[in-house]
Simulated assay, not measured.
Amino acid sequence: MTAFPRKPALLAALALLAGAAMTPAEAQSTVTEGRKLAFDRGKGNCLTCHVMKGGDLPGTIGPELKDIKAKYPDRSELTAIIFDETKRNPQTMMPPFGRNRILTEQEIDAIVDFLQTL
């Protein structure tokens, strides 16, 4: 039995460090899961505040989510925003999804994978 917790995001990072890349099917799976979470009105709920390609009845409180990979080439910045934007902007309306345990680290990683396709 290993002493390390089994976290998919950690395992994926270790695999990348070891030189093993995600297969295209694995990458597509995380993008699909991220899209599902982002559009889920009870979980990620991104559409409450953001316009996103493919989303129905979007809100206009937050910025439109497009060209994300160009805006955030370093995925860690986008991950930090979703985890807890109040650290960067204390006046934000965006909920701290990670800090408040609304989303797990794995779910945030999947949403970032999806957003980077927009």
Rank of each mutant, 00 (worst) to 15 (best):
S76E: 12
I111C: 11
L17F: 08
E26H: 02
L11Y: 03
A15Q: 11
R101P: 01
D56M: 07
A13H: 09
A27T: 02
I102F: 03
Q91I: 04
P90M: 10
F114T: 04
D113E: 09
T60K: 07
F114R: 05
P73T: 07
K71L: 11
R6A: 14
A38K: 07
N100R: 05
P58M: 04
P63N: 01
R41V: 06
A25R: 08
D113A: 15
L16P: 01
C46G: 09
I111G: 01
A20C: 07
L65R: 08
L57A: 14
A20Y: 07
A9E: 11
L11R: 08
A18S: 15
P5D: 14
P90H: 08
A12F: 12
M52H: 00
T23C: 11
T104K: 05
A110E: 15
A27I: 01
L78G: 10
G55W: 00
E64T: 14
T79E: 13
P95K: 15
P58N: 06
L11V: 07
T30P: 01
G62N: 02
G42E: 10
Y72C: 03
Q28K: 15
E33V: 01
K53W: 06
P95H: 07
A13G: 09
Q116G: 03
P95C: 08
E33L: 09
G98I: 10
G54Y: 06
R41H: 04
P63R: 07
E85I: 05
I102S: 03
F83Y: 15
I111Y: 01
I82R: 05
L78M: 05
I61W: 06
F83I: 10
A15C: 09
A38V: 14
F114V: 07
L17D: 10
P24N: 00
P90E: 04
K69E: 08
F4P: 07
L17I: 02
V51E: 12
K43G: 00
K71A: 13
Q28I: 01
D74R: 08
D74M: 02
M52R: 00
G34A: 10
A21Q: 15
H50W: 08
H50I: 09
G62Y: 01
T60P: 01
K36Y: 02
T104W: 03
P8R: 14
K7E: 11
G62I: 00
T86P: 10
R99D: 15
A9L: 09
A38F: 12
L65C: 03
I81T: 14
T32L: 13
R75Y: 06
I68V: 15
A12S: 09
R35I: 00
P90A: 06
G55N: 00
L10F: 11
I111F: 03
I82L: 15
P95A: 15
D74P: 04
